[in-house]
Nucleic acid binder design. Structure first.
Lengths: 186, 186
DNA sequence: CACACTATTGAGCGATGCTCAATAGTGTGA
DNA sequence: TCACACTATTGAGCATCGCTCAATAGTGTG
């Protein structure tokens, strides 16, 4: 198997296992067994468990980022509202579809790994993307950053409640969109 | 040494080590060595590493909760504004004083342990406490929950910027207080 | 067919999480 | 004071873990 294919396979296994096990219980042996290869080979691709772990978390962050990106053909100025709506909708969809995965990613990946500050830096990418899509100034990115945490928390809360007790998704989305406006105005 | 004293000592060591190491790099041997006891004894108090880990994270959450509680003698109705201010101020102080510790706690403790949903349930306690202190209705607790995430993120961002570039703390606190009003009104 | 290169293996080392039977220490009642 | 019981504590030992490394299987090229 080629290097790229193997790496993709191993990352896929890691992404799948991260859902049901926190990182400290994820063993190299298990991953190797699942992939049908020897421990040695895994260490050939990722010299350290932390390296492998970082690669998995990085891939997960990129995947999330890809999944929540608004349509590319939207105009940052004219369609700012649409871009915002799309972002919130897709953020909610992302979290609702794979709640365990998202929880594990955000609260289980640790602050040290992933280069700088881990998930905090991931949120910064998200915030920057939203600010870009909406044509906001750079000094508003931190505000969007915190708003992202707000939306994330609401989405986790929403997707954690039984389907019968849930507020309408559209209502939630509308709330989050208005919330950004309100927070930027404070 | 008595059971209680020993437990307190071990939890203290865990709290200290959690600042500089993510849980997966924290070894029982290190803790035992730091405490000057044998590995066996540690397993006598905490049968599993996860048990010990959960106890440490639980103690950390309780400590945070204690540190951010507003003064007990405030009237929930008349002094709602003061209670809110105190909470935000102490939340910022807590995060700023031990940023690494808080980061490790929130983003490094994993979603599975700590009984139910880990840090999410901790945030729920925080939100409930704020709602109580301000005399808010039960159905507003989720909103406060998400607002807490917003404040936490702002505080982490704020305490992560160099002292020279920081906005005034009072300005931040005032913003967060107004933000809660704005969000509840949306 | 020989060569070089890459993917892959498996034995093995030290450290880790964990178990358990045995010990040291301390207080209590006779 | 001595024997007893109880609890804190130890240390040997096991299976597994993360990790290293020299050797091998496999594949494409001249």
């Amino acid at each position: 198997m080629s290097q790229d294919d193997r790496r993709r396979q191993l990352l896929g296994i890691g992404l799948r296992m991260l859902v049901e096990k926190p990182i400290q219980e994820l063993s190299i042996d298990d991953v190797a067994a699942e992939a049908g290869i020897s421990r040695g080979l895994l260490f050939h691709y990722y010299p350290t468990k932390t390296d492998y772990y970082d690669a998995v978390v990085g891939a997960a962050c990129r995947r999330v980022l890809r999944n929540i990106a608004p349509d590319a053909d939207l105009d940052p100025v004219a369609d700012a509202g649409t871009a915002l709506r799309q972002f919130v909708e897709r953020f909610y969809a992302q979290i609702d579809r794979r709640r365990g995965f998202y929880l594990a990613l955000v609260f289980g990946s640790g602050p040290i790994s992933l280069g700088g500050e881990g998930v905090e830096s991931h949120r910064m990418s998200v915030a920057r993307r939203v600010a870009d899509a909406m044509g906001l100034a750079d000094d508003q990115v931190p505000a969007v950053h915190a708003w992202t945490a707000y939306v994330e928390d609401r989405a986790l809360l929403w997707s954690g409640t039984p389907h019968g007790d849930r507020v309408d998704l559209e209502e939630e989305v509308a709330h989050c969109c208005r919330a950004l406006g309100a927070l930027l105005a404070v």
